[in-house]
Design a protein around this nucleic acid. Structure first.
Lengths: 150, 150
DNA sequence: GAGGGAACGCAGTGGTCCGCAGGGGTGTGT
DNA sequence: ACACACCCCTGCGGACCACTGCGTTCCCTC
């Protein structure tokens, strides 16, 4: 039931970009080091994120990445959908799902409503939390317990 | 982000047992046929369910399975935890998680709160929906649109 | 008490995805 | 020119998925 590291690493990486927004492009090497991730693996994740417009790349020396739009306009759900696919526990719980392909007997599917409710429960969380929220929460935690942070 | 067929098939199978509760043991063959599942694959799923006490088996001819306790006392979450493992999007969002093993730098984990909220969102759904609810919903659907059902 | 239905259990299998690593190409500031 | 950092393709060992096959054990029915 776990999501993969893709969504987690991606969220961590974009959090770093949000935290250092306005400080110029951030190199993957720095992001990976600060969050303790594999730099090369992270490279594979930022490709789709760039194509989806969530981040922008600056090539060449002193290059790196910046957010593609404001941190308050990027939700965790946006990141997950790019890196993990649709946010849904089953295919049959997707928004525009074709009933005729549901289960063996679409008429006798007792549990589809459950999965739809689960999907909405997840969406209610990931679509309302933005990168800005993550940064603000993190900064207020630093204030409250500075000794815990480097 | 999809759950596997284990949780879905298991839910369907236990729904069948709840629907036919009081009619004697239900054979896997019948359950699999009615829900359009592979009988032999289902066999592998009911093993853990039996060991967890969610169902009871009756061996021999005319044998089969019955619910281990009342349908109103078995939630979808119970089934998922047996067949899919913990209901949580990440390991670090588990109830009794040891902080010291979180990420590379446990002090600098900006996203753990998100995953905990996702977990609670899922739990809020799957831990409140019982097999009895599924049966009642299904029966009221049959009443409303009998022509759609066999 | 023989037959057969049905639960048990183990082993194997093709496929997909995960979580990387390696290595080369390309564009750009200094 | 050089170094830096993005870009992209390839491979790879491992894990899990969704089954299938086959044999064994139990127990009701006839």
């Amino acid at each position: 039931m776990y999501i993969s590291t893709k969504g987690r690493y991606g969220t961590k990486a974009l959090f770093e970009l949000a935290l250092h927004a306005g400080e110029g492009p951030q190199a993957l090497r720095e992001i990976a080091a600060r969050q303790g991730l594999s730099e090369h693996y992270l490279e594979q994740l930022v490709g789709p994120l760039r194509k989806a417009g969530l981040i922008q790349s600056i090539r060449g020396a002193q290059g790196g990445y910046v957010l593609g739009r404001d941190a308050s306009d990027i939700t965790v759900g946006d990141i997950l959908r790019v890196l993990e696919g649709p946010v849904s526990p089953t295919e049959c719980a997707l928004e525009n799902f074709d009933f005729s392909h549901c289960c063996a007997n679409p008429q006798v599917c007792p549990d589809r409503d459950v999965w739809i409710k689960v999907r909405k429960g997840i969406e209610q969380v990931v679509d309302t939390i933005t990168l800005r929220d993550l940064v603000e929460d993190w900064q207020s935690n630093v204030e409250r317990a500075p000794v815990y942070y480097i």
